[in-house]
């Protein structure tokens, strides 16, 4: 922690200056994050909704009791967990392999970057439009599978309960790969070249050298990517909203989508706050994990 030895150059009567510098930030944060979060906590103990002119009515733990009994909620929890388990390992490993593959002079590396960064930069709405073309009943995937004789019938990628969630997961992976690859590429730059040369003398070459050297040295980065992608995956909303609207039969409904649906479609405001609180607890756990990892790694130059 940097300490300013500024007592000398801060005359009395100027004690208010730091607070003036901080005031705009504190006001905005208080208004949009801090107070609303506390308010949401309070609302989750009340009955408040449809008729917004009525003030919230304190009902104690009723929302929480309902939450525990709410089958749809548990389906969304299950979906979010499936989503996490499906997306996070792939996003932790695949970008690393790709980063190792391209961490050398390759012709056309510029195009390569465009190919992987474009999905990162485009909005989920645009991504959703592009992917619907591939997933549609007469879309590219089905045309290809039918045309090549691999399948007899078109696959309902987005409209069958078994496939809707995996189809959404594919879009998330498509969008995230380039992002995490950048983190890994930056990490690979920190590994000294002599290490590989020394390893080559000891007979460690090819992919073995990556197993012996790259993997251990990249461990902090792998942890970082795992936690960042896990937090992002827990909050998945827009992909679901654009591609499936949570359907069919709740098969792709995630916790955040459920919060949105309860609040703005069912108008069960206070119940939505209760679901949001459950989400908060999950993210809090992941974030604490992340802070602990941050502290133990040198991977974050600004810390």
């Amino acid at each position: 922690m940097v300490k300013a030895s500024g007592d000398r150059w801060q005359p009395l009567g100027r004690a208010a200056v730091p607070y003036l510098f901080l005031a705009p930030a504190l006001v905005v944060l208080g208004m949009t994050v801090f107070w609303p979060a506390l308010r949401a906590l309070y609302l989750s103990f009340t009955s408040y909704g449809f008729d917004v002119t009525q003030p919230p009515l304190w009902i104690g733990l009723e929302n929480f009791q309902n939450l525990l009994k709410d089958r749809t909620f548990w389906v969304t929890v299950k979906n979010t967990v499936v989503y996490l388990v499906g997306v996070v390992p792939i996003l932790a490993i695949a970008p690393l392999l790709l980063a190792i593959l391209v961490n050398r002079k390759l012709p056309g590396i510029r195009w390569f970057r465009v190919a992987y960064y474009t999905p990162v930069v485009v909005s989920v709405v645009v991504a959703g439009i592009a992917w619907r073309w591939l997933y549609a009943e007469n879309g590219l995937f089905n045309q290809f599978l039918l045309g090549s004789g691999l399948l007899e019938k078109a696959v309902p990628w987005l409209t069958s309960p078994a496939l809707s969630l995996p189809s959404v997961m594919v879009v998330t992976i498509w969008k995230g790969l380039g992002y995490y690859m950048v983190i890994y590429l930056a990490g690979l730059q920190t590994i000294p070249k002599d290490l590989y040369e020394a390893a080559a003398i000891d007979g460690s070459d090819g992919w073995k050298k990556h197993w012996d050297i790259t993997l251990p040295l990249m461990r902090p980065y792998i942890f970082l990517v795992t936690v960042i992608s896990a937090i992002a995956a827990t909050k998945v909303f827009e992909e679901v909203y654009i591609l499936t609207q949570g359907g069919p039969l709740n098969s792709s409904k995630t916790i955040v989508y459920y919060v949105y649906e309860q609040a703005f479609q069912e108008l069960e405001m206070s119940y939505a706050c209760t679901v949001g609180l459950a989400l908060f607890l999950v993210i809090l756990t992941l974030s604490i994990l992340r802070l602990v990892l941050d502290r133990n790694s040198d991977s974050t130059p600004y810390l």
């Binding site: 922690m1 300490k3 300013a4 500024g6 007592d7 801060q10 004690a15 200056v17 730091p18 607070y19 510098f21 901080l22 930030a25 504190l26 944060l29 949009t32 994050v33 801090f34 107070w35 609303p36 979060a37 308010r39 949401a40 609302l43 909050k235 909303f237 955040v256 919060v259 949105y260 609040a263 405001m269 939505a272 706050c273 949001g276 609180l277 989400l279 908060f280 993210i283 809090l284 974030s287």
Partner: peptide, 27 residues
Amino acid sequence: MQFPGRQLLFVMIVGLLVVPLQMTLIP
């Protein structure tokens, strides 16, 4: 700058990173 509560304020602000914005929408 040196002022009382500096450290606490910083920790609190960073702590707000944890709040999912979806929670704040309704209030």
